[in-house]
């Protein structure tokens, strides 16, 4: 019987990872190399590497167009709103769920509020249309309600002003339950005797939630916050594009880097400029994500990401 050396058996076992390595090479690393397009006057017939260089022209073109400022501001504003709102909703829901003692109701509640996380952005877009615009002529559920209270109705899809809030609401709807699962897990790990001590001191349940649970959720919230800030440059493309699509009237408040890149790629076919924006996004995103991971590792060793 042969005895295998550790090195040989590990190389043999390494075969299991070959398909994944091939995947990363083709779909993650090759596109990184493809980013040279950002510095080229791209011509499909010449291919990525045959097209002539044009230095920083693509970047200059993007930053000179009036769009750059708008989409950068939108990306950051929307992501900050999303992050703040989903964290707040997650903490609030988790604390409230923790108060519920009926096991059946608690489980039903968790299942219900978690479900929107699994719903496709396209479906969310349709729900929003049902709520806000309605079929031919009539005004949708929200406008029906507004009219019922004698309030003026709003033509939502031609009014860019409220959209950051509408999208934030959608985000809370979509992610509130997901976030609450994370926070509820954190609450469960808080030792019981902390609450017993509070009880002996005569604290009400509201006081215990505010003075004990909330402060003890800080580390979890900090981790999620740092990771969220790290991803601030990557808008949630799918949801925003599914909802807003090519509706130009809403762009002033809803157009983010990802949707802009996607549109210019599909409609204008300007690969060079689009790749330049993508590279800009990747580099700033990389700096933010790495900083976030470093901060988070320092902050809490036991929940380190890498």
């Amino acid at each position: 019987m042969t005895t295998r050396t550790p090195v040989r058996s590990s190389l043999w076992l390494g075969l299991l990872a070959v398909p994944a390595v091939a995947f990363f090479l083709v779909f993650s690393y090759a596109p990184m190399a493809g980013l040279v397009v950002a510095f080229k006057e791209f011509d499909i017939s010449e291919g990525i590497f045959g097209s002539p260089w044009n230095g920083l022209d693509n970047f200059r073109y993007f930053f000179a167009s009036g769009d750059a400022q708008r989409i950068l501001v939108n990306t950051i504003v929307l992501n900050v709103l999303f992050l703040a709102a989903t964290l707040a909703a997650g903490v609030t829901l988790a604390i409230m769920l923790n108060e519920i003692r009926g096991r059946f109701f608690k489980r039903a509640a968790q299942s219900t509020i978690f479900f929107p996380y699994f719903v496709s952005p396209v479906v969310i877009a349709i729900m929003l249309q049902v709520l806000l615009s309605g079929p031919a002529g009539s005004g949708g559920v929200v406008n029906d309600a507004l009219a019922g209270f004698g309030l003026p109705t709003v033509s939502w899809y031609t009014e860019p002003g409220p959209w950051p809030w509408i999208l934030t609401f959608v985000k809370v709807w979509q992610m509130g339950g997901y976030m609450s699962v994370i926070f509820l897990a954190a609450i469960t790990s808080i030792p019981e005797d902390v609450y017993e001590a509070g009880q002996i001191d005569g604290a009400s349940r509201a006081q215990m939630a505010l003075r004990i649970t909330l402060p003890l959720l800080k580390p979890t919230a900090a981790v999620l916050l740092v990771l969220g800030v790290g991803r601030i440059f990557y808008g949630d493309f799918g949801t925003i594009y599914a909802i807003v699509g090519d509706n130009g009237t809403l762009f002033p408040t809803t157009d983010v880097i990802d949707t802009y890149v996607f549109r210019s790629l599909r409609q204008i076919g300007d690969f060079g400029t689009t790749a330049a924006i993508g590279l800009f996004q990747s580099v700033v995103g990389f700096v933010l994500v790495s900083t976030a991971v470093l901060i988070q590792r320092r902050y809490s060793k036991e929940t380190s990401l890498l």
């Binding site: 590990s10 190389l11 076992l13 390494g14 990872a17 994944a20 390595v21 990363f24 083709v26 779909f27 993650s28 690393y29 090759a30 596109p31 990184m32 190399a33 493809g34 980013l35 397009v37 990525i48 990802d258 890149v261 996607f262 790629l265 690969f271 689009t274 790749a275 993508g278 590279l279 996004q281 990747s282 995103g285 990389f286 994500v289 790495s290 991971v293 890498l306």
Partner: peptide
């Protein structure tokens, strides 16, 4: 094997080529 492989798999989480190179690919 394991450590280099882990790093290799996690780098794409930090830096991505983005839409255009993927589309061309």
């Amino acid at each position: 094997v394991s450590r280099p492989l882990a790093i290799f798999a996690y780098i794409p989480m930090l830096f991505a080529g983005g839409l255009v190179p993927l589309y061309l690919l």
